[in-house]
Each structure stands twice: as structure tokens, then as C-alpha cells.
Design a protein around this nucleic acid. Structure first.
Lengths: 72, 72
DNA sequence: CATGCCACGCAGCTAAACTACGAGTTCGCT
DNA sequence: AGCGAACTCGTAGTTTAGCTGCGTGGCATG
């Protein structure tokens, strides 16, 4: 559940930066397939990986967990 | 680096709720040793685990990654 | 002293993070 | 319509690290 939201958020951020999955994978030093898995919420990156995603996407880590549809 | 901050944040939140590591472990259904490892930043919980921590500590996931000393 | 809370080393298991390859699908372009 | 780039999605494999238990020992505070 959480990793689905996380994946959607990451995809959203990547597109807003006008990056392809391949470019992102290049910057992160990981495979394109993994990016796909993460964005679809099949896999979730480790906490160390989260830091990498945030760095490359130029956002804070907490922004990766900031969604629009937050019930509160 | 990130997991150290995360650990300190979790410990901080736990104490603010007046909980012991044992009580937290009980609520999470994990071992006390693991709580200790996480809080010291030796290990980091998985993304799924993050959701559990947030639920038990009654905060949003992004609050786990919100630190005071944010350089900006 | 005695009890509760926590750090920490050691050792092990297993789930899942991450990889590669190949074929299929969807899309933006002209 | 058709071309190609971007992406999905199986399957299968490797390896990391998340998570466990046990045992010890430190450090408070009553």
C-alpha cells in the first residue's frame, strides 16, 4: 500500500524533472528494470536507496512520502 | 547517514509517547533487539516497516523523515 | 542491592532488494 | 498508419540486509 504510493510519487517527480527511467537508472547506478518495479510499487527501495532517489530527484526524503490525498 | 537520523527521530518520538523499547516492540510484533538496532542506526526498517512505525507512533510516514537540523 | 531500561557483540536465517534477458504493449511523432 | 522510444511484465537468479535470539554488561534510580 505504502510502496504503491511511493512508486507513484517517484514516477511523478521523475516526470516533472523530464527524466526517462533510463536516465534515472543511470544517475542512480541501478537497472532500468528496478526503476520500473519501484514505480509500479512491486518493489520498494531500501532506506539507503531512498536517500539516493531523493538526491537525484533533488528533493528531501520526506517529500518522497508527501502525497496529495492525505487523510487528516 | 540517513538511517542514523531516522533512528534518532524514532527514539525521540518513542520517548515523547512515554514508551519503552519493549512496549514498542510489543506493538510492532518485533524484537526489542531490533528496536535497539534501528534507533542506533545500525539497521533501518524496510519501507513496509516504516508504515508500521508510523502507525504505532501515531504520526505520518513523512514525519519520520522530518528532522530539525535540516540544512537549507 | 536490586530492578528496569538499554547498548552491544556474535551468529544465524530468510525475505526481499536488486540484477539480467526477452518479449510484448502503449505512447508520442510525423 | 507506422516507426521508434519509453515502458510493462514474466521468469529466474544472486546477494544484501532486515530481523531474529541469546548472553553480557553498563547505567540509572529507588
Amino acid at each position: 500500500m505504502l510502496q504503491k504510493k511511493l512508486g507513484r510519487r517517484i514516477a511523478e517527480l521523475r516526470r516533472s524533472k523530464k527524466l526517462t527511467q533510463e536516465q534515472l537508472a543511470e544517475s542512480l547506478g541501478c537497472s532500468v528494470e528496478f526503476i520500473s518495479l519501484v514505480e509500479r510499487g512491486v518493489n520498494a527501495p531500501s532506506v539507503a536507496g531512498l536517500a539516493d532517489f531523493a538526491r537525484v530527484l533533488k528533493v528531501e526524503v520526506r517529500d518522497l512520502f508527501t502525497f496529495e490525498d492525505e487523510k487528516r
